[in-house]
Every structure is written in C-alpha cells, then in structure tokens.
C-alpha cells in the first residue's frame, strides 16, 4: 500500500490536473443527484415511520423493470417523448401502490402497537419484503440483464467549447454520458418537485408535522396512520423513480437493488437520519467521493474494485463517531 502510494507521486501526476478533477467532480455530482433522490425516499420513511426500510433497493429495482416493460410494450405505438413520460409515471404508480399495500398489511400493526419488539420487527419485515420481491422479479423477468433505451437522444451539435453527440455531451474536456445526463436532469426536476411538495403543500406540511410530533399532529386533525401510509408509499415511489431513470444507463437484473440499498443507507446516515437537506447533500457527497476515489486511487488495478468501499468506510466512521450525521436531530 505504501509502496503504491510512493509510486503514485512521480508516475501518475497527469491525473492531478484541474480538468480531470473537474470531470470527476461533474460525474460525481450527476450520479449524486440520483443517489439523493433514492435517499430522499428512505429518509422520508424514516422521519415519519421511524424505521429504516431494508427493501428500499427493491423498489428501485421494480421501478426500472416497469419502465423497461412499458417501453417494450408501447415504444412503437406512441411518440417517443410520450412513452418516456408514461413509463416514468407507470413506474411511480406501481412502486407507490406496492408501498401502500405493504405498509397497510405489515407496518400498520406495528404502528398500532400490536407487535413486540417493533424495531426488530421493522427490520425483519422490510427485509423479508426485499427477499420476496427480489426472487419474485427473478421468476417473472428471468436473470438476463435488461436495458431500456434512452428516453431521448441528445441533439447533435458542435458549438466549439460545447459539443454533443448522440451518446455524450462534451464541455471542454469534460465528457458526460447522455444516459446519465438525462437521468440527472429528471432526478433534479423530481427533487425540486418533492421539495415543493414537502414545504409548500398542506399534505407535505402534514407529513413533516407528523414526523416532528405525532400527538400534536393528531390534535390538529392529521391522521398519523394515513401519514404513515403516504410516507411509505412516497418513499417507495421515489426509489422507483430513481430506478426508472437509471434503467437506461445500467443493465438491469433482479439484484440491482442491493447496491442501491446500501448506497441509500450510507447517504441517510451521513446526512443524518430523517433529515431532508441531509439526504440531498449526502447523496452529492457520496457521488463525488466515489468518483474522486476511483479516479485518483493510486493503484489502477484496484481502483474500480474499491469503488463501493469508499462510501462504506465513510458510513462506518460516521456511525461510530457521529451517529446523528451532518444534519441529524438529537434523538
């Protein structure tokens, strides 16, 4: 390890250039936006229900599959932009519905206090759901990787500093893939819409009120049980949306959710469990850390293999040193 670090200094200085680091930053931020979207759902669930959903990644996986199936079915019968929007809506609807049904069947008894050791129960049921959904999709979709086509191609142009081909956008030396650029844009729109919903609408405020004080919320006429269901459904929907935008970037298999889950855990713990700004910032930080870590890791042989470790190490450290994370409330 030390030897490789020493080796790094004279031999790989070309990596330490402003353009390269800028490129890694841009890539990290782009993927970080999608991480944020995923983590926002998980943090919403935690803030209202007080549980961590271990099936979050599976909603992400299902969102992707719904888009894939939708495009398969309608891509020749509808205009391209319309199929894209339709597919996203379908993915959101399906994941929302699964979330609501699951919450009603399995988590409501817990909220009503009918279950011993609720913490353990919450881990186990959400985890059981993950297990079930993974194998269900394996049975239904088979193990072959699926990939949806891009929602739309970039317009091809060349304006000197900024060039675009079908597959990528080049700004100077920074190259961004079209698939993830589109995914990042949709994620940004969804994040803004979600923030608007949470802070400007009555229902959003009711959700926040419930997360802060259930009794007080109930006093002013908010039904905390319905808020639980809504929060879980919305959380599942956000994960589904994240999957829906990424299915055109990655090949999709029934176990893609495992990585997504662990990324979301890392982010919400880093940002502070239950904190909305925390999950947004945490997502961006993890995106950038992974990108810089892989890009600049001294030993090129191991760089990619350690990609997921960077985030997990931060995660473990945060848990041990400051479990409340960046914006965590005192619990």
């Amino acid at each position: 390890m030390v030897a490789t670090l020493l080796h790094f200094v004279p031999a790989q200085m070309w990596l330490i250039t402003p353009e390269f680091i800028l490129r890694l930053l841009a890539e990290g931020l782009l993927i970080g936006l999608i991480y944020s979207l995923m983590a926002l759902g998980l943090t919403l669930i935690f803030s209202v229900l007080g549980i961590v959903s271990f099936s979050h990644g599976e909603f992400y996986m299902i969102g992707g599959y719904v888009v894939y199936l939708f495009l398969q079915k309608f891509q020749n019968s509808l205009p391209r932009a319309l199929t894209g929007i339709g597919a996203l809506l379908a993915a959101m609807l399906v994941t929302f519905a699964i979330g609501v049904v699951f919450e009603r069947l399995f988590l409501q008894p817990m909220a009503r206090g009918e279950v011993d050791r609720p913490n353990e129960y919450a881990i186990l049921t959400t985890f059981g759901l993950a297990f079930f959904l993974q194998y269900l999709m394996l049975g239904l979709m088979g193990p072959f990787p699926k990939k949806a086509r891009r929602f739309f191609d970039l317009p091809v142009f060349d304006a000197g500093l900024i060039q675009a081909t079908k597959a990528s956008l080049k700004i100077g030396n920074i190259t961004l893939g079209a698939g993830r650029l589109i995914a990042g844009l949709i994620a940004l729109l969804a994040l803004l819409a979600m923030l608007y919903f949470m802070f400007k609408t009555w229902t959003g405020r009711a959700l926040q009120a419930t997360s802060q004080d259930r009794q007080a919320a109930a006093v002013v006429g908010i039904n905390p049980m319905n808020m639980n269901t809504l929060a879980f459904g919305l959380g599942a929907m956000l994960a589904g949306l994240a999957g829906a935008v990424l299915v055109s970037v990655y090949s999709w298999v029934p176990w893609v959710g495992v990585i997504a889950s662990s990324k979301s855990f890392v982010i919400i713990v880093l940002g502070g469990m239950g904190s909305i700004p925390g999950s947004l910032l945490g997502g961006l930080i993890i995106g950038v850390v992974e990108s810089l870590g892989t890009g600049l890791f001294p030993d090129p042989v191991r760089a990619q293999a350690y990609r997921d470790v960077f985030g997990l190490v931060i995660f473990a450290l945060v848990l041990l040193v400051k479990p409340t994370g960046l914006f965590g409330r005192k619990l």
Partner: peptide, 8 residues
C-alpha cells in the same frame, strides 16, 4: 441500537 447496528 437495533437499526443502527444492523446498518453498521
């Protein structure tokens, strides 16, 4: 505790 331990 519980959830945090599971995550860790």
């Amino acid at each position: 505790r519980s959830t945090y331990l599971a995550l860790f």
